[in-house]
Design a protein around this nucleic acid. Structure first.
Lengths: 120, 120
DNA sequence: GATACTGGTTACCTCAACGATACCGGCCTA
DNA sequence: TAGGCCGGTATCGTTGAGGTAACCAGTATC
């Protein structure tokens, strides 16, 4: 259904951490992006989000479920299979994320430059 | 130059706290909005942001200065006068804030409804 | 019997953001 | 000389998001 996720899709040194912008909790935005291409399993999500611990991932997914951003579907198989999928509501965040991305392309360098030249 | 700010412009019970979105630190987005209408003095900013303490306000403004979002101009008068003003970079955030607002009008009710119906 | 896989949970800890409160220096006015 | 205005600082305490490490149940496979 969906191609495997790029293990490097979220690079730890990515300057986007300087963005004055956050989608939900720390990992919410990245999870939305991971799910953009179709439903994913718990363990699949851990691959691109290398730094996330299972506790925080399940915590974040639970919050996103509660807010109606994702659905959780458990299949009665062995080994167990659970799939998370964006709802229409969750998918609507992609538009915002794209707006942030465009802003970032245009203005993030200016923020980094301002920090650079701001001697304390 | 600019009309006085509405002391009630940020209501403590505003459901926007449920938005899966944040501009910078806790107060950054609101400060940008306060400065949208023109330069403001330190004390002027404290009016609409009733709950902010001077420490946090000056801290946040310093960060925004560092990132090139606002400028700080101190006039040599008595009593002292210091004005904060959005830079072009800071002003560019207004576009994003507006996008968030539109998203909010359309989808925030769905989030609140999802929380409502999500019995734990 | 041991080990592995999946999808988690539990208990504990850390740290930075945020808040409360008090205070400061320079000038002006009463 | 006492107080107020302005633009902050200094000190301390709290809180909660997030991280660490270990563990668990159920099944299958070696």
């Amino acid at each position: 259904m969906a191609e495997p996720l790029d293990p490097d899709m979220f690079h730890p040194m990515c300057p986007s951490s300087a963005l004055p912008f956050q989608i939900g909790d720390k990992w919410t935005g990245m999870i939305v992006l991971c799910l953009a291409g179709g439903p994913r399993r718990f363990t699949e999500l851990r691959v691109p989000l290398r730094a996330i611990t299972p506790k925080v991932l399940s915590q974040t997914l639970r919050t996103m479920c509660r807010d109606g951003l994702v659905t959780r579907t458990a299949y009665d198989e062995n080994p167990p299979r659970v799939e998370y999928e964006l709802t229409e509501l969750g998918r609507s965040l992609l538009v915002l994320i794209d707006a942030v991305r465009e802003w970032s392309d245009q203005y993030l360098p200016a923020i980094l430059a301002a920090r650079e030249s701001h001697q304390v």
